[in-house]
Write a protein that binds this DNA or RNA. Structure first.
Ligand SMILES: [Mn+2]
Ligand SMILES: [Mn+2]
Ligand SMILES: [Zn+2]
Ligand SMILES: [Zn+2]
Lengths: 147, 147
DNA sequence: TCATGATATTAGAATACATCTAAAAATGGA
DNA sequence: TCCATTTTTAGATGTATTCTAATATCATGA
């Protein structure tokens, strides 16, 4: 379903980030990155917090938020906002998203060359990124609805 | 710059909404809708609150939020989330957005037929809408940066 | 017109998510 | 191992939004 050449945040990338910024490697940072690297569900900060605490209790929310913001700043994770919460995306491959209006599920949608070459008139602004969000009803919710 | 056939929220549409839902027409609702109908800046709830209060003091935040949510629910305004705040969009014409990473300005970008006919593989989900967000540096911020 | 019941508005409390603080703990190089 | 520096922590604070319940307004029809 997913190609294994997908560009992703990995624990190795954390090591590089820590090295090049003169930061320190800590179990919390490693646990947060391992959690992100292992998931495709675009977790919220709180979901990361709960997941990390399952394996490494007493990790604080502040550390989770600090680390997530560090990774955002280093462009090793992307951020998606939906219904007032931020979701974190470790998939670095340019891609888009489908969001289910019923269950809130966020799924990756492969980017096509056709759509990347934007024909949009952007009124003289410098465009640096393009993100497409598709909304609708996911296959599962659609099935449930027509039970 | 903007076509005048643009589909927009109008005070008349509020009147229809109020009628078909058995709601009441109030000065607050009218003022909020007039504020939205007159702007192209995609205001936040607080910006609507302040604008409405300039002409109609003592309007509460609760009423602004209630009315905005009523309009969202009736699909007479759309919502854009950016940096943890919701922005409200009375432009009902299908269109996209450019967001300046420097000043936060949100500007409409015309939708093209070419891009509307999505070629994306959506994994069997029912797609109901598609929204493109372009990010970058607006012309003004770019000019300031190269002063 | 006025009374009545339904709906809307209000100020402020409550909630949710995120950031900040400052004291304690952990890290890694000398 | 020591120590300066960085990180973590619990809880406080901030910010955006929703909730509450008392009061005000509206619209209907007697
Ligand atoms: Mn993704
Ligand atoms: Mn718009
Ligand atoms: Zn769903
Ligand atoms: Zn700008």
């Amino acid at each position: 379903m997913y190609s294994n050449i997908m560009i992703r945040l990995t624990p190795q990338k954390l090591t590089e980030l820590v090295a090049e910024r003169g930061l320190k490697m800590t179990p919390q940072r490693r646990a947060i990155v391992e959690c992100l690297a292992a998931t495709r569900v675009h977790p919220t900060a709180d979901e990361v917090f709960m997941d990390v605490n399952r394996r490494f209790p007493m990790t604080s929310r502040a550390t989770v938020y600090n680390t997530l913001n560090l990774l955002i700043d280093a462009e090793l994770v992307n951020i998606i906002e939906e219904s007032g919460v931020k979701r974190f995306d470790p998939n670095l491959e340019p891609h888009h998203h489908f969001i289910c209006s019923t269950c809130g599920m966020v799924e990756d949608v492969e980017a096509t060359d056709r759509l990347e070459t934007t024909m949009l008139n952007t009124g003289g602004h410098q465009v640096e990124s393009m993100q497409i969000t598709l909304r609708g009803t996911c296959a599962l919710c659609f099935e449930v609805k027509n039970d």
